[in-house]
Write a protein that binds this DNA or RNA. Structure first.
Lengths: 122, 122
DNA sequence: CAGTATCCAATTTGATACTG
DNA sequence: CAGTATCAAATTGGATACTG
């Protein structure tokens, strides 16, 4: 998502941290448990390796998640949530709750519009 | 913003409603008081007429705001928040609060990264 | 005043092949 | 396994001129 610039309300900062298409899901998953790269790829159906890497790096930069490498014959990497990431996850959950409570309302609205559009302009 | 599809957590619904670059600001402004088109254009410096119109229409479709036309010699239109829009604004405020509280943390992180990058790889 | 219509630029996301 | 590199597609946002 394009960076927002209006910082009067602080929402921009939050959305810049979480705006990527997959970031809330990543945050959610690593908050449940530390996840490996391949694991996240499976958990987020449709994400490409490039984008997953990108968003993980950004979230690492933002101190939302932590990357730990376990050396070995086959390399292993784990991503886990940071304390800071937890605080964001909590805040995000409020919006998620709103979404859950009102997605019916939203869906109905969309349908109403659809019906209105398909009405034969009588 | 691109539509999210993961609806397990409800965040997608919320972000689809508020994802546009200006929507939170629009919601915020019309929540403070009913606003006219030109007024919003002034209040949201940098928004183009096209985009403002687009986002207003989408938010109207989503039942977040209401459009009222006052006929007259010079036409006048007012956008006001709906009850539903208020509930979203409240939810968004939680994230805004997070942003406000932690933007210092975020900024520091970004600076740390900048410093790291500009360090002459010694 | 309150938009619409076009055209264009920027950014984000994705598909795929390849590497340590 | 955990990525990187490259190229292309899709969306969004923006500038500007014009209209009822």
């Amino acid at each position: 998502m394009k960076k927002l610039q209006h910082d009067e309300c602080g929402f921009a900062a939050a959305l810049n941290a979480i705006g990527g298409k997959w970031k809330t899901m990543i945050l959610w998953e690593v908050n449940l448990a530390p996840r490996r790269f391949g694991e996240l790829r499976r958990l987020l159906p449709g994400v490409s390796e490039k984008v997953l890497t990108q968003q993980l790096r950004e979230m690492e930069t933002d101190d939302l998640i932590e990357r730990t490498v376990f050396p070995g014959a086959v390399q292993r990497v784990e991503y886990s949530v940071t304390a800071f990431g937890k605080t964001l996850n909590d805040a995000v959950c409020v919006l998620s709750k709103w979404g859950k409570e009102h997605e019916r309302h939203m869906a109905q609205r969309q349908q109403a519009v659809q019906a209105d559009l398909s009405r034969p302009a009588a």
